[in-house]
Design a protein around this nucleic acid. Structure first.
Length: 120
DNA sequence: CTACTGACTGATC
DNA sequence: TGATCAGCCAGTA
C-alpha cells in the first residue's frame, strides 16, 4: 500500500470535531519526519472529495493552524469547516491543538490499515 | 542516481 | 507576530 493511500485512510478515520497535524499523522504511519510527504499526499485530493481533509492542520507550537497555501479559497473553506465542527479559533487563525487533537495510537492505525487492505 | 518541489516543523532572529 | 532557515520525506523529471 502506498504512503499517500495510507494518509488518506487515516484522514478518513479522524472523528468529527477532532484534528490531526501533519507531523502527528506521519508519526502514526511510523514515519515521524514525513510531515511534508503527508501534505503532498493530501494535495492530490480532488476538489469535491468526501475525505475530511480539513481535519488535518499544521502545528505551530501548542497551536494548530491552517497552513494551506495552494489557494486562499481552500484555506477559507478549511477554516469554515473546522469552525462548523466546533473548533474555537483564538484570534481568528489559530486554536489550541491539545483541545481537539485526535488521541489515537500507531497500533490502532496499523489495525485500521490492515482492515482497509482486506476491504480492497 | 541527482535535482527540485511541496497543504511540514522547530529553531532563530 | 512574522519572516527565514535548515532538516525531512515521497513523488516526479
Amino acid at each position: 500500500m502506498d504512503f499517500p493511500q495510507k494518509v488518506i485512510i487515516v484522514t478518513e478515520a479522524i472523528p468529527y470535531g477532532k484534528v490531526l497535524n501533519y507531523g502527528r499523522l506521519a508519526e502514526l504511519l511510523d514515519k515521524p519526519h514525513a510531515a511534508r510527504a503527508v501534505g503532498y499526499a493530501l494535495s492530490g485530493l480532488p476538489y469535491g472529495t468526501s475525505v475530511p481533509w480539513h481535519r488535518v492542520v499544521g502545528k505551530h507550537g501548542v497551536y494548530g493552524r491552517i497552513t494551506i497555501h495552494g489557494s486562499k479559497q481552500s484555506a477559507d473553506e478549511q477554516l469554515a469547516r473546522l469552525k462548523d465542527e466546533g473548533v474555537a479559533f483564538d484570534g481568528h487563525r489559530q486554536f489550541l491543538l491539545i483541545d481537539y487533537l485526535w488521541e489515537t495510537t500507531p497500533i490502532e492505525i496499523a489495525a485500521l490499515l490492515a482492515a482497509a487492505r482486506h476491504g480492497e
